[in-house]
Computed example of a mutant assay.
Amino acid sequence: MTDILILTHADFCPPGHLACVLDRANLAFEVRRADHGELDGYDLERPRAVAIMGGPMSVNDDLPWLRTEIAALQRFIERRVPMIGHCLGGQLLAKALGAGIRHQGYTEMGWQPMRRLESQSPWLAHLPEEFPIYQWHGDSFDLPEGAEHLLSSPWCANQGFSWGGFILGLQGHPEMTEELVSGWIHGWPEYLDPSQPSQESAEVMLDELPRKVAELNQVAEGFYAHWLKLAELV
Rank of each mutant, 00 (worst) to 15 (best):
K212N: 10
Q199C: 13
S182N: 03
D35W: 05
S119M: 12
L66P: 03
F29D: 04
G16S: 11
W184C: 00
M176K: 08
S201M: 12
A51P: 00
E215W: 00
I77P: 07
K229Y: 11
L66R: 00
P197E: 15
D3F: 09
E221T: 06
E69W: 00
F29T: 01
N158G: 06
H103G: 09
H186A: 13
H226T: 03
Y106P: 03
D11S: 13
W123K: 03
Q112C: 13
L151N: 03
V219Y: 01
L206H: 08
G187D: 02
L228A: 12
G110T: 01
Q74H: 02
P144R: 11
S119I: 04
N26S: 14
M83G: 05
K95G: 06
K229R: 15
M205L: 11
S152R: 11
E208P: 00
M1E: 04
Y42D: 02
P47W: 04
P122L: 14
G146Y: 09
W227F: 08
L216E: 15
W123F: 02
Q199I: 10
Q104R: 05
P56D: 12
L124W: 06
Y106T: 04
L230P: 05
R24D: 15
L39Y: 08
I6Y: 03
E203R: 09
N26Y: 07
I70R: 12
A10D: 15
G55C: 11
A25G: 01
Q104D: 03
H173T: 05
I6N: 00
H226K: 12
E78S: 12
L151Q: 01
E215P: 02
A214G: 12
E200S: 13
V81I: 15
M57Q: 12
M114E: 14
M109C: 11
M114S: 09
A202R: 13
V50R: 02
